[in-house]
Design a binder for these strands. Structure first.
Lengths: 131, 131
DNA sequence: CTTGACCTTCCAATGATGGGAATCCCCATC
DNA sequence: GATGGGGATTCCCATCATTGGAAGGTCAAG
């Protein structure tokens, strides 16, 4: 199939498929006489793998590692688990950081009367507060 | 003071101070005869404002809006509160998304025995699992 | 033989930050 | 007054993932 169909079947845009090939995440696709890229089911499978991993917040570098493990039938699951759990911790850390930001800001907002007066603890907090 | 001192006093790197000026977040700084930028206490104050807002996850575009409100003595606090609460919701949404990713991945990892066997539900989940 | 959908490559922008080069200014010391 | 060094200037490039567009080639249907 051509790149457009592969894109539709995998949920990865044609633009990104070419990009992933360019940065070495995917091997160079087979070409027809016309020069068009030609994909098979296994390629779509790999693309879906990439898409799911992206949805889970893995970076392309991490995905390259996961793909190598995925394609290596002899690899140990321990390595995969290690990568996955390290990523889980990074995700949870980021989530905590964002929550902390949100609650700080919500706290500032709670003390802002939010009417026509110019008095605003939010701006004061940003301007002068500690931290 | 020169840019290096202003950087130290505000916690914003000299590189970023120039960048903020270049993208219009800050007005062009005063210059000495030598061409060096010259900063006063109020400039440092503004830089600290920016830094705090960045720490709270505001984008530079959002900060531009907050700065305008901050400098406008007559503005209503309602507008500031509206911006702040909208940002709080965006932060909380992102935090929830990351938490969801983490728990999905943690769930997959929990079913991976993590030993020398190649069997791995994490990779299977990435390769074939539902959306 | 034209139309239109699809494909190709290449270049550039996004947003925030950082690295580094080449050059210049300022100040202290000899 | 020459020199050395630290700080300043501008400019270009890199990151990371993705998207947009331009200029052109290919293919199937009318």
């Amino acid at each position: 199939m051509r790149i457009g169909e592969a894109a539709k079947a995998s949920g990865v845009s044609a633009k990104m498929i070419r990009h992933y090939e360019a940065v070495g995440l995917l091997p160079a696709a087979a070409r027809r006489d016309s020069g068009y890229r030609d994909y098979g089911d296994s390629d779509v499978h790999a693309l879906r793998f990439i898409r799911r991993a992206r949805d889970l917040g893995f970076s392309l570098a991490e995905i390259a590692g996961l793909l190598a493990l995925w394609r290596d039938k002899a690899r140990a699951s321990a390595e995969v688990k290690r990568l996955a759990l390290a990523h889980v911790e990074a995700l949870e850390r980021k989530a905590r950081d964002l929550s902390a930001m949100a609650s700080t800001l919500r706290h500032l907002a709670a003390h802002c009367h939010g009417d026509a007066r110019p008095d605003c603890p939010i701006l004061e907090g940003l301007a002068g507060g500690g931290g």
